[in-house]
Design a protein around this nucleic acid. Sequence first.
RNA 1: CCGGAAGGGUGGAGAAUCGCUCCUGGCCGUGAAAGCGGGCAGGGGAGGAAAGUCCGAACACCAUAGGGCGCGAUGCCGCGUAACCUGCGGGCCGACGCAAGAAGGUGCUGCGGGAUACACGCGGAGGACGACGCCGCGAGGCGUCUCCAUGGAAAGUGCCACAGAAAACAAACCGCCCGCUGGGAUUUCAAAAUUUGAGAUCUCAGAUGGGUAAGGGUGAAAAGGUGGAGUAAGAGCCCACCGCUCCGGGCGCAAGCACGGAGGCAUGGCAAACCCCAUCGGGUGCAAGGCCAAAUAGGGGACCUUGGAGCGGCCCGCUCCAUGUUUCGCGAAAGCGAGAUGGGUUCCGGGUACUGGCUGCUGAGACAAAUGAUUCUCUCCUCGGCCGCGGCAACGCGGUCGAGCAGACAGAAUUCGGCUUACAACCCUUCCGGAACC
RNA 2: GUGGCUAUAGCUCAAUGGUAGAGCCCCAGAUUGUGGUUCUGGUUGUUGCGGGUUCGAGUCCCGUUGGCCACC
Length: 130
Amino acid sequence: MAEEPTTRLRFRRNARIRLGKDFSRIRQKGERLVAGCIIANWIPLPAGSHSRLGVVTSSKIGNATVRARARRLLRETFRVHQHDFVRPLDLVLVARPSIAGRKMQDVERDFLTLCKKAGLLKKTESRSCG
RNA sequence: CCGGAAGGGUGGAGAAUCGCUCCUGGCCGUGAAAGCGGGCAGGGGAGGAAAGUCCGAACACCAUAGGGCGCGAUGCCGCGUAACCUGCGGGCCGACGCAAGAAGGUGCUGCGGGAUACACGCGGAGGACGACGCCGCGAGGCGUCUCCAUGGAAAGUGCCACAGAAAACAAACCGCCCGCUGGGAUUUCAAAAUUUGAGAUCUCAGAUGGGUAAGGGUGAAAAGGUGGAGUAAGAGCCCACCGCUCCGGGCGCAAGCACGGAGGCAUGGCAAACCCCAUCGGGUGCAAGGCCAAAUAGGGGACCUUGGAGCGGCCCGCUCCAUGUUUCGCGAAAGCGAGAUGGGUUCCGGGUACUGGCUGCUGAGACAAAUGAUUCUCUCCUCGGCCGCGGCAACGCGGUCGAGCAGACAGAAUUCGGCUUACAACCCUUCCGGAACC
RNA sequence: GUGGCUAUAGCUCAAUGGUAGAGCCCCAGAUUGUGGUUCUGGUUGUUGCGGGUUCGAGUCCCGUUGGCCACC
């Protein structure tokens, strides 16, 4: 019970947003905030459910390799911090062109400042990757 | 020794923690079951270009897929090559049948065929411009390098700027030659007294008649060329040679080749201008297409009469809709699934591409789209310092210390072959440039 | 996966295979006390890149690079 499954840092397929109507609903009706190389849209979910993530990388930020790299970094950042939110939410992260060439630490710093500005994080701890 | 360019090859290894996806096999919870949720173990998990989508093929569906016209593409000859399709034989399975047998199937196996035209590669032939070399008095010939989308210019139309006389039915501006007319000079003869007439030679001119195409500085290209004979001047008019065209049999699988004979020579270039000839091409693309639970709107299929509409560029053919009869399941997204056994590679044999044999190793399958994040170690390599060795030197090699620390291009999306483009570092081959020494 | 458009002066665009041009911009001069306007003159180019056809390519053909757009 101490290492209960709620704190495991998993990120499986059902933790992703997969439907186009979910994407359009979150990006039209949800909250929106920009920080660094990330644009975030989110909708809060009822307590007890799992947070979900969707990542958008348009063709303006680079070729396929750059886009895949950005998608993996954003997903990894969400995976590490998925239990640090005050309440579960549906989150859509949109990568901006300045993400090309960034490292994991830069992306994580942008993500944390964005979540602090939005007031989504628990105030107690801030765990980091590694 | 250093630097550069082009082509080809390789495109780091190991480990830990946390994760993703697929396959196989258990486990737990729930449930009558199917299933759903959770979790464990083992195994697999990007490239030489996966890219661009430039070319071709397979595969799938569509009935405007058929026929004709149009349109598009391709165009010397031979050989070789993929996925995939397919023929015959053997083995195995096998509905059905009492049995014998047997429709059929097969990710098994042997021998083939196709994979076109027009992907592409290799070899050959021919041609072109330019360069170089050799031979010839010359026109030209031969060889090497480079390049070639290489059917037809004697079916037709069109174009060939500027320059030039002329740019394509040859023509005739200058020129040359023979005449005609007029003038001038010289000279001969005659008459007569310094003039006239006639003739000859030379020369000038023409709103002049013919001959000729040798020459004319142009042009990318000037109507076969070089040399001679010949002529009033000239000309394939004639002759020799060179080139060209046609014919003949021979050689070669063929493209073609060389030889012999004939023809005085026509037929300028452009078809990557229209066009003609030959050959090929239906269209759309795995988002092709197939199956399907629940819920929901109400419709869907078949047949036939009549009417209306449409038709991928056009026509013929054709298709659709409404109405009528009959019948019962149809259906977008989501889900399942199309979807990977075909190959790659080591070794040996034969070849121009390539191919045969045998053994071993390897084996991606997502769908808002996995193959990741962080860290450590090892080498490869780069830069700098010091030391040693080699060298005249430029510089190289080795050791050690420090820093950078796998550094580039780049991410499967139905499959296969080709083409093109991008590429750090290292290796190989060829070429170019520079420095030092002999 | 499929289809299309486009690249010409600093900018926007022209140009039958035959000397690449117009407007704006820029520069110089004139006009004005100064500036603007106006007038006159001038500079502007590897026609994206590499090949090929042709006597000769911005144009024709092939390849290639970049940009833009559309469809399922």
